[in-house]
C-alpha cells in the first residue's frame, strides 16, 4: 500500500504535465488577447501591437511554454500580466475562502445527505422514501444561482440573519467567518445533498438485497446493526467515489457561488483570468486544481481499501 501511494504520487507528474500542456496549447490557439484588454477600448491598433510585443506574447509557442516550464521547475509560477503580482501570491490570497467554502459545503452535504439516503433505502417504497427523494431532487433541479438568490433574499435581505455577500477570514473569528459562509455553502451544497443522498440510497438498496444482508436479516440480527455494520460499510465505496468525483464539480459550482456571494475565491480568479487571458494565472490555477484533484482521488482510492478489503492494489 505504501509502495502504491508512492507510485501514485509519482504518477501525478505526467498527469499534471499533460494538463499543463493541454491547457497551454488550448489557450495558445484561442484568439483572446490580453494586450487588447490592457490597452483599453480607446487605444489604437498600433499601440495594442506594441503592448503585445512588450509582453512577449508575439513569441513562438514552444519558447513561451519552455520558459514557463523552466520557471515552474525553479518553483516560480510567474507573475500576472495585468497586476504584476506573483501568481503564487494571488493564489494564496484566494485559497482560504475557496477551501472554507468547499469544506463547509462537503460537511453540510455529508451530514445531511447520508442519513437521508440511508433512511430512504431502509424505508424503500414508502412515502418517507418518496418524500426524501423529492426533497433531494429539488436540490439539483434548480440552478445554484437561483438557489443563491432565493437564500440571499430570504435570509439576508428579509430576515437579516446573514450578510448578503463577502468573506471574513477565519482569523477574524469563527462566528463572523461562519455567518458569511452559511448561505453560500447551503446554495452550493444543495446539489451535493441531492447527489450523495441518491447514491447512498441506490447503493444501500443494492447492498440490502445482497445475500449476506438478507441472511443477517433472516437470522433476526438487530436492524440497526445490519444497517451500520453491513450495509453502510459496503455502501461506503460508491459514496466515497462520489465525494471524490464531486471535488472537481465543486470547483465549477464554486465559480458561480463565489460570484453570487462575492467571495474572493479561486473560482472567480480563474474565470476572470480566462476572460482576460491572464495566461500565467490560468496556468497556475489549473496546475493547482489538477494537483489537488489528484491528491483527493488518491485519498479516495486509499479509502476504498479501507472500506472494502476485497479491493487490492
Amino acid at each position: 500500500m505504501f509502495a502504491y501511494t508512492i507510485r501514485r504520487i509519482i504518477a501525478t507528474i505526467p498527469v499534471m504535465a499533460t494538463v499543463a500542456l493541454f491547457v497551454f496549447s488550448l489557450l495558445y490557439i484561442a484568439p483572446g488577447d490580453p494586450a487588447a484588454i490592457i490597452a483599453g477600448d480607446q487605444a489604437t491598433p498600433a499601440d495594442v501591437e506594441r503592448i503585445r510585443a512588450s509582453l512577449g506574447l508575439d513569441r513562438p509557442f514552444l519558447v513561451r511554454f519552455g520558459e514557463w516550464v523552466w520557471h515552474i521547475i525553479h518553483g516560480d509560477l510567474g507573475t500576472s500580466i495585468f497586476t504584476n503580482l506573483p501568481v503564487w501570491h494571488m493564489i494564496q490570497q484566494r485559497l482560504e475562502p475557496t477551501a472554507s467554502l468547499m469544506v463547509l459545503t462537503l460537511a453540510f452535504s455529508i451530514t445531511l445527505a447520508i442519513p437521508m439516503g440511508v433512511v430512504a433505502a431502509w424505508k424503500h417504497g414508502t412515502w418517507i422514501d418518496r418524500a426524501i427523494m423529492v426533497v433531494a431532487v429539488m436540490g439539483f433541479s434548480v440552478p445554484v444561482f437561483v438557489i443563491g438568490y432565493v437564500l440571499a433574499y430570504t435570509f439576508a435581505l428579509q430576515l437579516d440573519w446573514f450578510p448578503v455577500q463577502g468573506y471574513t477570514p477565519l482569523s477574524h473569528g469563527f462566528g463572523p467567518w461562519l455567518s458569511n459562509m452559511v448561505l453560500p455553502s447551503l446554495a452550493l451544497g444543495a446539489i451535493y445533498i441531492a447527489l450523495i443522498a441518491r447514491i447512498t440510497r441506490a447503493t444501500m438498496l443494492e447492498v440490502l438485497s445482497q445475500d449476506y444482508v438478507r441472511t443477517a436479516r433472516a437470522k433476526g440480527l438487530d436492524q440497526r446493526a445490519i444497517l451500520y455494520v453491513h450495509a453502510l460499510k459496503n455502501a461506503a465505496v460508491p459514496i466515497v467515489t462520489v465525494i471524490g468525483i464531486g471535488f472537481a464539480a465543486l470547483i465549477g459550482g464554486a465559480v458561480v457561488t463565489e460570484s453570487v456571494f462575492a467571495i474572493p475565491g479561486l473560482g472567480r480568479l480563474t474565470v476572470d483570468a480566462i476572460l482576460r487571458r491572464d495566461y500565467p494565472v490560468i496556468q497556475g490555477v489549473v496546475l493547482l486544481f489538477s494537483f489537488s484533484y489528484v491528491i483527493v482521488n488518491l485519498l479516495v482510492d486509499l479509502l476504498y481499501t479501507l472500506f472494502d478489503p476485497r479491493i487490492r492494489y
Binding site: V15, M16, T18, V19, F22, V23, L26, L27, I29, A30, P31, G32, I245, A248, A249, I251, G252, V255, T270, V271, I274, L275, I282, V286, F289, S290, Y293, V294, N297
Partner: peptide, 18 residues
C-alpha cells in the same frame, strides 16, 4: 484524472474562446 481535474467550466470557456 487529468481530464477530470480541469473544471468543465474552464473547458467550456476555453472552447468558446477557441
Amino acid at each position: 484524472d487529468g481530464l477530470m481535474s480541469i473544471p468543465s467550466i474552464l473547458l467550456a470557456i476555453a472552447l468558446m474562446a477557441l
